[in-house]
């Protein structure tokens, strides 16, 4: 009896469970309006939000595109600044001839070697490196009178003066050679300046060729203006130098005169004298 009642007691909940599972299988269709309305409201809100999001998306996309364009522009410009192609063809970038001319001018210093009588001056001019020492030596070789030197007789003083004179002569010869070269170089430079001014003026004013600020453009144009004047001045300088070279210096004239006298003397000495 007791066992049976216990069995019944245990069976009841099981029965209930079975009852429950059995009843779960049949679905009851219901209609909850509040729920439906709230979901519908939610959905409409979401739709609206989706619309906004689309707008935001479009705006963000635009922003992204523009920022990327900015980035590529900056990088392009940066690489443009490093390019040399646009100025490579300009006349101003080709300075080969001018460099050669200046190098020639420096090499003209070697011309001192041609004068054997000014050997020590040549050595001082070319071998010494230290500027102060070099200037002392050159000064010693060129100055007409030196307080530090004491001369006891006329002959040694005479030979000293002769040596200075020869040094001067050599230097003057070298200098006039250099002047002639410089005159030539200056004339070339004057022509080049005119050409450069013409070329750059065209390129600066036609647009789309160079990218630079207006200040730089104006400044370059004004420089071009000055170039015309500079060219004129260079020409004048060149003429002046040529004029200096064409007129022999007093030293050279002295030397030539002395040589002429010596030749006359020599001719006179070797010409037999006829008395009629």
């Amino acid at each position: 009896m007791k066992w049976k009642s216990y069995f019944c007691l245990a069976g009841l909940p099981l029965l209930c469970l079975v009852n429950h599972t059995l009843s779960a299988q049949k679905v009851i269709p219901v209609e909850d309006r509040m729920l439906r309305d709230s979901i519908a409201e939610n959905a409409s809100r979401s739709t609206k939000q989706a619309g906004y999001l689309t707008v935001i998306n479009r705006l963000t996309k635009n922003t992204r595109d523009e920022v990327e364009a900015t980035r590529s522009l900056q990088y392009d410009y940066q690489s443009h600044l490093r390019r040399t192609l646009s100025t490579a063809a300009l006349g101003v970038s080709d300075q080969q001839s001018q460099q050669q001319a200046v190098l020639q001018l420096i090499h003209t210093g070697q011309h001192l070697q041609d004068y054997g009588f000014a050997q020590s001056l040549n050595e001082a001019y070319h071998t010494l490196e230290e500027p102060l020492e070099k200037s002392r030596r050159l000064y010693d070789h060129l100055v007409p009178y030196d307080e530090m030197k004491v001369f006891s007789d006329l002959i040694s003083f005479n030979s000293y003066q002769q040596a200075q004179l020869r040094n001067m002569l050599a230097l003057e010869e070298m200098s006039s050679r250099r002047k002639a070269q410089l005159a030539q170089a200056l004339r070339q430079l004057a022509q080049q300046k005119i050409r450069q001014a013409d070329e750059l003026k065209t390129k600066l004013t036609e647009g789309q060729t160079f990218s630079m600020t207006e200040a730089e453009r104006l400044k370059l144009l004004s420089t071009m203006q000055q170039y015309l004047l500079a060219s004129q001045q260079l020409n004048a300088q060149s003429d002046e130098l040529l004029e200096q070279v064409s007129r022999p210096s007093s030293l050279k004239e002295q030397a030539l005169e002395r040589y002429k006298k010596a030749q006359i003397r020599k001719t006179a000495a070797t010409t037999p004298l006829f008395n009629f």
């Binding site: 600044l81 040399t84 200046v102 630079m212 730089e216």
Partner: peptide
């Protein structure tokens, strides 16, 4: 160098000026 064309041309001009100055 990273410089504008104006600066580049100007520097070229300076180089030429210095050559003249040296002469």
């Amino acid at each position: 160098f990273s410089i504008t064309e104006g600066e580049r041309i100007r520097l070229h001009m300076y180089a030429e000026e210095y050559l003249l100055l040296a002469a």
